[in-house]
Write a protein that binds this DNA or RNA. Structure first.
Lengths: 232, 232
DNA sequence: CACCAAAGTTTGAGCAATCAAACTTTCTTT
DNA sequence: AAAGAAAGTTTGATTGCTCAAACTTTGGTG
């Protein structure tokens, strides 16, 4: 059994190695960034990563970054599965706001048994995505990375195509509570549709025009964390 | 914040100090028994209990046993509250068998926030007792020790009174999975009523006569862990 | 290409919780 | 009350995770 700490390292490495989608990422995480997201010193991260490598959960060469083995990836995906099912439960059943479930799930994900998780999944109606639109890995360990493009990409696409389309929000991949509150305030949660987009490349901005007429300007950086699909 | 380990020590001391009901117990736990129920060596228990005393969670004198302070009791009751609400959730919502929820709750009780617990309590309909009939402490930290007498006491009471009465099971205070399965098999779970009792003091036995005619003989020891009330 | 800054690594130490084993106190029994 | 058993305590060591600080490697930039 991987300790809670080991699970957190694997999850963090997985996340860093797959920024921008499982296929899009480099598959590798730098030790500095890993240390930063885990809130430990660089030395601690180095030591722990060496231990992961010894346990065949990761591949690691000195000064060369870390990448998960199949075994490490399997555990990371399982943690992610637990995390996302728990978040879904908190929002769907216990009526938590989507901005406050992350911390809670962060603790619970290490305390649920496979059996509990299976029952929970059943109880929730076998959801495919969590409240942020992030896909829930299956019990067998596969993730259905959903279609869709980032808001940044959509806004940057050819003007003609974009002007014809409206967009629907599929996913908001960020766990910062303030950011999520902001998104919810602007009614830009997953499921919102009928949005029109425009870009202001010089200012580095993307503009979202909601059907009711309200406009929300976002930086490209922020826009790249929101996934949308063209509709109609 | 008390660590998971500290919470477990407090919970175990509370349980040992209140065997046979909060009022009935001695209020004190021996270090040997404490070590045994926690599965640690006696030396470890001594060391940890000294730390609890330093933190004003328990009173402790060398060679003299340990008892919780008000502060320690408050935490113990809070852990118990979490444990019992979680067990209720697992049985009531996720359809777990009552014999298999203990281990699960044992891990989860350290990972739930006060907010989650409040929502869960609401969702469950503010239950007063858990699936074993054990009372759920309130958020304010009071336990309503329910009325009722042990099966052993009931069976030992004057023959005349006992013969007139039938009994209802209120509580089965034990977490051993096999024992609970046995009890469930015999249909002796909390809520079962219409039971008649007889005692065989020489053999140290208590006999339960179910309305359908099945008889279950129990040792006095086991009978003292089942709480019943006379009815009708 | 030589140097410097940034990134990464190593070392020595600390904390929480644990054990085994030597030791002390208390209880029981005769 | 003395002896021995049972219960409890102390000591020294270990494990997992962490830090600070000294050190090394890598990779740009002048």
């Amino acid at each position: 059994m991987a300790s809670e700490t080991v699970e957190n390292y694997l999850k963090a490495i997985y996340a860093l190695a797959t920024v921008g989608g499982a296929e899009h990422g480099t598959g590798e995480a730098s030790l500095g960034r890993l240390a930063a997201v885990l809130g430990v010193t660089a030395g601690t991260a180095t030591t722990m990563v060496r231990k992961l490598a010894e346990g065949k959960l990761a591949k690691y060469e000195r000064y060369g970054g870390v990448r998960l083995t199949a075994k490490g990836t399997a555990i990371a995906l399982d943690v992610l599965r637990r995390h996302r099912l728990i978040e879904t439960f908190l929002v769907q059943t216990l009526k938590f706001d989507w901005s406050e479930v992350h911390e809670e799930a962060e603790r619970l994900e290490h305390a649920v048994s496979p059996k509990l998780l299976a029952r929970l999944e059943e109880f929730l109606g076998r959801p495919k995505v969590d409240p942020h639109g992030d896909p829930i890995p299956t019990a067998k360990g596969s993730v259905a990375e959903p279609a869709g493009i980032t808001l940044a990409e959509a806004a940057a696409s050819s003007t003609a195509a974009r002007k014809r389309s409206t967009y629907r929000i599929l996913r908001v991949s960020d766990q910062n509570a303030d950011f999520l509150k902001f998104i919810a305030d602007r009614n830009l949660k997953p499921g919102t549709s009928g949005l029109k987009l425009s870009a202001d490349p010089d200012a580095g901005l993307v503009n979202i025009h909601a059907p009711e007429g309200t406009d929300t300007p976002l930086s490209r950086d922020v826009a790249s964390r929101i996934v949308v699909a063209a509709e109609g």
